[in-house]
Structures are given as structure tokens and as C-alpha cells.
Amino acid sequence: MYEFTYHRPATVDEAIALLKSADDGKLLAGGHTLLPTMKQRLASPSDLIDLGGALATGIDVSNGCVTIGAGTCHADVATSSDVANAIPALAKLASMIGDPHVRNKGTIGGSIANNDPAADYPAACLGLGATIVTSAREIEADDFFTGMFDTALGDDEVITSVRFPVPAKAGYSKFPNPASRYAMVGVFVSSAKGGIRVAVTGAGPCVFRQGDMEAALEGDFASSAIAGVTQADGDLNSDIHASAEYRAHLVGVMARRAVDQATG
């Protein structure tokens, strides 16, 4: 790890001011991606701005929405009875992220801002049609995840909370990478007033919606409805653990299991 200046601002505004004034600042919101990267000397920010004291934490369920403060760690979401009652699939997803260390340190805001192609939370955001609330505006999940590690966030914009509309039904099925436990393929499905959503993480360079499956589920929200829907493998990831072809196959299997879970 190279040397850096550590800051722990008390407010988001202060954090943004620090970020603007830093030569090459980075925000820290849990750090389970950034700190190992720094230890590997693959990143050397001049300033590390720890949001631990600035971000809101906590979960609020009201007006048909689950709103989670950006500083809330995965373990709190996983064990929240409010989340379990409103959107059980979201609590389950949080319980499957990483390991106990990651779940107790990593935050929902950090995970979403990082937008790792194999992270779990982006699937929940896209699969539920969440709204990402930032220091400057509100961004719909459909517009937020723009590419591999890319989001619609501006340079000096900080996520403050995430608002998930409560669906009628939802399910998340994840096939973890055998080694890292990141999602090799994870599929989040939901059925709500606004329609059907099928979001796929881990399979491609960025979380994406599976339109064919959504269409098939529109009239019949049952796993049998998507039994014949195949995922094209052309743009999927390929690595030593899973070829694109295998990932495409798993998208189908995980989607059916997620629907079964939602309807079961």
C-alpha cells in the first residue's frame, strides 16, 4: 500500500468538499474492494475519504418502499425483520454477499457505486426497479448501471440511500463462483404493479435485464413460462471458471429457480 491522507468527514457535504479539493481522492464506503486493491498497489489515491461517519444508516419501510441508508452494512439488511417481511428476497440476497467480514463492513452504497460486474446488489436494484438517491438527485436503477464498474454517478456525487419499491413477489437465485463466492450468475426476478423484472448479474460485463424472460413471464409468472427461453452467450463473460456458454445456461437455471422461489 502506498501512503495516503485519511479523512473521516461528519457529513456528506464535507466529504464532497474534501473530494473536490483532493489531488486524487477516493471515497471509502466499507472498503472491501478498494482496500485490497490498494494493498495490491493497484490504486494509490492521494486522499481516502471515509464515509463511515457521514452516511446515513438504517432501514425504513413505509409508503410501499424499503429505503436503506447508503451506509447500511449487508449484515444489517440480511438480518432486518422489516426487510424480511417486505422483500424477503432482498434480505436473502444480502445474506449471500461475500463472507461475514464483508457483510459486516461492506455497505449498500459502496457496493452499488462500485458496480462490480459480479456483485449482488446491482441485481436487486435493477430487478426491483430501485431508485438511487444521491447528494444531487434521484436516479432510476435502469439509468444507473451504465457499464462495467461504471455508473451514472458524477465525479462529486455520493449515494445517500436506495429506495426499493415493495413488489408482489420477488426471488433471487445465485450461482456463486466456487472460489470467490462472487456471483458467477445471479438472477433477481420480481413481479410488481409496474411489471415483471428479470435482472442478471455476474454473467455479463454489467448487470442487465433479460427482456425475453420478462416478456415470457408477463402473462404467466411461473418458471415453466421461461423453460424455453434461452440466453444468448455472445456478450457474456468467459473465464477459467465458466465459459460464456455455461454462464448462458446458468442464467436460465437461476432464473427458473428465482421464479420458483418468488412463487413458492
Partner: peptide
Amino acid sequence: TEGAVYDTESGQLLTGSYMDYC
């Protein structure tokens, strides 16, 4: 679960961390 994998051409170790060595 286990197995060391080298890139057969370059000889780079592809299972060089617990991210990939299971």
C-alpha cells in the same frame, strides 16, 4: 475444487489468489 491453472502460452499463473484458486 482445486487446480493450478497456467496460461498455456504465456506461462502466467491464472489461479494466483483465492479469487480463482478454490
